[in-house]
Structure formats: structure tokens, C-alpha cells
């Protein structure tokens, strides 16, 4: 069964632009990205949208649908009523290249700032031995498809552009947590998480978790555990004393 839906889509280059109204056909089983493609095919051939897999696995078609960050390919039209006007805009936190396509290079810059996996110097590739229970906690974070909707929705940079130099965003704080929890990573990441990547800016309001299309518990399983690890290092005198008395390594245990 098909019907005509009312769409408002952001059109423009750079930051300049406006919402344009369209009336477009919708068929049963379609998703928002299908409708955007129909607009391209029928009414707005120069409408720019980034997409790739149409299966919720590439993270390309991140956009804001009725104000909420979502993947266009995973947002079913059946979740809207037929008389509803659906507003589609680009991700707000990143600069617009054209229409729905944003420049997400902020995220690649932040990724480069995090030191990569650092194994012990005396362990050669092929010699790693670890049990499943030691790595499965951080395997959850490997599900990330880098749609960057968590960084987009995080108010620390969404509402405060000036915080971008100091704040890596949930996606990359999760990456730091993943590496810090890894049994074979020896780099010290706790001080850097707080001082260089802005973990202290996070006020754990859980929007990153709410929008994650992979349902990764970013806040509960990555950011809060990382905050607790930072507390061990920087703010807990008892842990500091215990490390001194028992001569424990304070970085990895």
C-alpha cells in the first residue's frame, strides 16, 4: 500500500540553506533512505546524501530525522503516521558539505590522536595468549560502525563548538576504554583520557547510548568504567596508597 508523505529536507551548501518541502510517494516496507533516493530520482536530482550498505552496517547515512540522530537506512517509514511531516536534516555537530552530507573529519582527527594498541615489548606477534573472558568486555565496543551519531548527539560539542579541541567524544573515549581494558595493551591511557581527550567533560547523560544503532552500552560499559579508572589514578588516595604499599603497577592489573 502506498501513500503520499510530506517531507521537509535541509537543502544547502556550507552552513547556508533552508528546509524545503516535498510530497513524495511511500510504499510498504520502505525506509527513510528509500524516500530520499526517490526524491533524488523524481524531484531533486542534485540532493546530496551519503550512503553505502543500506543495511545499518556501514554507518554512512547518519542524519537527523524529526530531530533525532538516526540511520536513514534503518528508520522504517511505518514508524511514522501517514499525515506526519517528516523533517530530515544533516547532523548538527559537523559542518555541512552539501544538503545531508556533513564533513566528519573531526572524528578522523580525534582517532589519529589516540595512540594505537601497544603490546608489551617482549611479546611478539603470534605470541599473544588471552582467554575469552579477558577480551569479551571490550569486544562489545568493536561493534561500533563509526556512524558518529554518538559524537553528533553529545551536547559537549553539539552545543559548544569551542569544546571540540579538548573533547574526543563518546566514540573515541570508548576506543580509549577498549584499549585500556585490553589485557595486552601496556600504554598508560588514564591520564590522557582525562587530560587530553576530555573525559571529565562527560556528564554521563547517556545520549550516546540512546542513539547508538549497534546498541552498545557506551556510557555504562565504557565511559563510566573509564571514569572509575581515572578516579583510581587521580582522585582516590586509598588506591594510591595501596599501590605504594603492595608495589602494584597502577596502570595495568
Amino acid at each position: 500500500m502506498s501513500y503520499k508523505a510530506k517531507f521537509r529536507v535541509w537543502r544547502g551548501e556550507g552552513g547556508e540553506g533552508k528546509l524545503e518541502d516535498f510530497t513524495v510517494e511511500v510504499n510498504e516496507g520502505e525506509v527513510v533512505l528509500d524516500i530520499i533516493h526517490r526524491l533524488q530520482a523524481t524531484q531533486a536530482p542534485d540532493l546530496a546524501v551519503r550512503w553505502n550498505c543500506k543495511a545499518g552496517k556501514c554507518g554512512s547515512c547518519s542524519m537527523e530525522i524529526n530531530g533525532k540522530p538516526k540511520l536513514g537506512c534503518m528508520t522504517r517509514m511505518s514508524t511514522f503516521s501517514e499525515d506526519e511531516t517528516i523533517t530530515v536534516t544533516p547532523m548538527r555537530t559537523f559542518p555541512v558539505i552539501k544538503d545531508l552530507v556533513t564533513d566528519v573529519s573531526f572524528n578522523y582527527q580525534k582517532a589519529r590522536e589516540i595512540p594505537s594498541f601497544t603490546p608489551p615489548a617482549n611479546v611478539q606477534p603470534g605470541e599473544y595468549r588471552m582467554q575469552q573472558i579477558d577480551v569479551e568486555r571490550s569486544q562489545e565496543f568493536r561493534k561500533c560502525i563509526e556512524c558518529f551519531m554518538c559524537n553528533n548527539v553529545c551536547h559537549v560539542i553539539r552545543d559548544h563548538e569551542e569544546n571540540k579541541p579538548e573533547f574526543a567524544g563518546p566514540r573515541f573515549l570508548m576506543r580509549i576504554a577498549e584499549l585500556d581494558m585490553h589485557p595486552y595493551d601496556v600504554a598508560d591511557r588514564k591520564d590522557a583520557a582525562q587530560e587530553e581527550h576530555g573525559l571529565g567533560y562527560c556528564n554521563i547523560t547517556k545520549c550516546c547510548t540512546e542513539v547508538c544503532p549497534e546498541h552498545i552500552k557506551i556510557t555504562d560499559n565504557a565511559l563510566i568504567p573509564m571514569k572509575e579508572r581515572v578516579v583510581d589514578r587521580k582522585y582516590d588516595p586509598l588506591v594510591w596508597l595501596g599501590n605504594k604499599i603492595f608495589k602494584r603497577s597502577s596502570s595495568k592489573s
Partner: peptide, 24 residues
């Protein structure tokens, strides 16, 4: 007008006045 990687216009977010477009 051609938009390139160095274009100043490219550094701007979408200028949306509404505080939110959420309808829920």
C-alpha cells in the same frame, strides 16, 4: 560556485534556528 575542501563555507554547521526539531 565550487565548494572545495578549503572553502570557508564548508566549515559551517547547518544554520538551523530551532532549538530542536524533535516532535516527540
Amino acid at each position: 560556485t565550487q565548494t572545495t575542501a578549503d572553502s570557508p563555507a564548508r566549515r559551517q554547521r547547518a544554520q538551523i534556528k530551532e532549538r530542536t526539531l524533535r516532535t516527540d
